[in-house]
Design a protein around this nucleic acid. Structure first.
Length: 430
RNA sequence: UCCUCGGUAGCUCAAUCGGCAGAGCGGGUGGCUGUUAACCACUAGGUUGGGGGUUCAAGUCCCUCCCGGGGAGCCA
């Protein structure tokens, strides 16, 4: 007698095995009951014959969905069964008889599902998304590992910030006053490149923006890379290589899960370097020809991005934004001081921004000026300014939003399904 | 913070002009020896988000509060 997982059934044909799991669905037909069992590796059908269970059949037949059970039985190849195999039960142990499970077989609304996120995670679609998320994360880490990056875990509690303080969650930090939940690890990565060359971090990021859209979470996961001696162009070359790698490897590994989501893989298979590159000025031209009256100097809005991504079947970089629309640390373009050497990467099919990146300002005086121009306190950034005092080098980096990337790969309409327990402006439960 | 849509049975929704509050799924009971969101019959299930108002009469109209969805701004 051997305990096994459903995924191992092809090697267990006609053997007596034990599996442990949950009743995902149940049907009966007179003297025969079909339990659809989920064990964390797959789904299979268990046949319970009334004749073999004279005392317990009536209870087994009425087992509520999501009851947990241990089944002993024989694995049989059966084309009529989902997955091609089924188990003919010889023994059924009921571990727990479930209360009536709130999530049924019909559709539910978003409020109900999000309130029941802890239970929603058991359903086939959510299981598929979590497996794709796992694969995506693994390929991201592998890419960095195989390209000579070192992982640097940046702090979650910080007193310096990358953007402005209005979008930070603050907490009381003992006698030192306010500390903030990290909004980016970038400044710390910049400190690490002088010792390690190429580094990355991958951790939770917190934004207290009162955003209320399908593209925003208050807590999300961001992957940031930072590379010494990389200029703006090398930065983009690396980003498109990186994104191509993670997309191709993820869709190759998780074709089955993407099929559950009914994701059309054709657009994703085209995602290979080189990507499209247009300047902010060119983006404005495109928008003007499409009826927009956006003025030079304004940041692009979500609708603007959608218009642009629809024109390309691959991701598109938008380069050289006006300096005033971007963060203080981005490098001023020597040829055009009113612009910075940066680029956002927009995913196709209308998904929009998944990466923000830039070459960083390595000149001490210009950086100091930017900090004061942005109303920030130079004293708090003294350690960051030190990086421009001791062997300053040209360097660049970028940040990729994990959930946005996953939303695109999975073809979802809302990124809240891509994180196990989403944190949103009006929702922090469960 | 602003704009917009919504809240009716456990869930998803319907209810015409203001005129008896309904269906499917889920639950319960029974039936069926190969089901695939199984099926068939019967059955229980309601403070129509809260409060106030107009009216002979309010799920429906008005005021107000609460909760949520989508979007804007901002960003990944």
């Amino acid at each position: 007698m051997q305990e096994c997982y459903i995924k191992d059934f092809p090697d267990k044909i006609d053997q007596e095995i034990i599996i442990k799991g949950w009743v995902a669905n149940r049907r009966s037909s007179g003297k025969l009951s079909f339990l659809i069992l989920r064990d964390g590796t797959g789904i299979c059908q268990v046949i319970v014959e009334k004749a073999l269970f004279p005392d317990t059949y009536s209870e087994i037949k009425k087992l509520p969905l999501e009851s947990s059970v241990i089944i002993q039985g024989r694995v049989v190849k059966e084309d009529r069964a989902q997955g091609g195999f089924e188990v003919h039960a010889s023994h059924v142990q009921i571990v727990h008889v479930s209360d009536e499970f709130p999530i049924g077989k019909k559709e539910h609304g978003p409020d109900f599902l999000l309130k029941n996120r802890h239970l929603w995670l058991r359903t086939p679609r959510q299981i598929a998304i979590m497996r794709i998320r796992d694969a995506l994360i693994r390929h991201i880490r592998t890419y960095f590992y195989t390209n000579d990056f070192t992982l640097i875990d940046s702090p979650i509690l910080t007193t310096t910030c990358g953007e402005d303080t209005s979008s930070l969650f603050s907490i009381d930090y003992f006698d030192l006053g306010k500390a903030y939940l990290s909004q980016t690890g970038q400044l710390y990565l910049e400190a690490a490149i002088s010792g390690l060359g190429k580094v990355y971090c991958f951790g939770p990021t917190f934004r207290a923006e009162r955003s209320k859209t399908r593209r925003h979470l208050t807590e999300f996961w961001m992957i940031e890379g930072e590379m010494a001696f990389y200029d703006h162009k090398q930065n983009l070359d690396l980003q498109e290589d990186f994104v191509s790698y993670i997309v191709q490897n993820t869709i190759r590994d998780k074709a089955q899960e993407l099929a559950v989501l009914e994701r059309d893989l054709a657009p994703l298979k085209k995602i290979e370097a080189p990507f499209n590159r247009i300047s902010y000025d060119e983006a404005l031209d495109i928008l003007h020809k499409n009826g927009s009256n956006i003025e030079w100097g304004s940041d692009l809005g979500g609708d603007d991005e959608t218009v642009i991504t629809r024109l390309f079947d691959k991701p598109v970089f938008i380069e050289s934004y006006p300096k005033k629309t971007k963060a203080f640390y981005m490098k001023q373009d020597p040829a055009r001081p009113e612009c910075v050497l940066c680029a956002d990467l927009l995913a196709p099919e209308g998904y929009g921004e998944i990466i923000g990146g830039s070459q960083r300002e390595d000149n001490l005086d210009i950086l100091m000026q930017s900090i004061t121009d942005n109303g920030l306190d130079p004293e708090r950034y003294d350690w960051y300014l030190d990086l421009r005092r001791y062997g300053s080098v040209p360097h660049s980096g970028f940040g990729l939003g994990l959930e946005r990337t996953l939303t695109w790969i999975c073809g979802l309409t809302h990124l809240r399904e891509t994180i196990p327990f989403p944190r949103m402006i009006y929702r922090a439960y469960p």
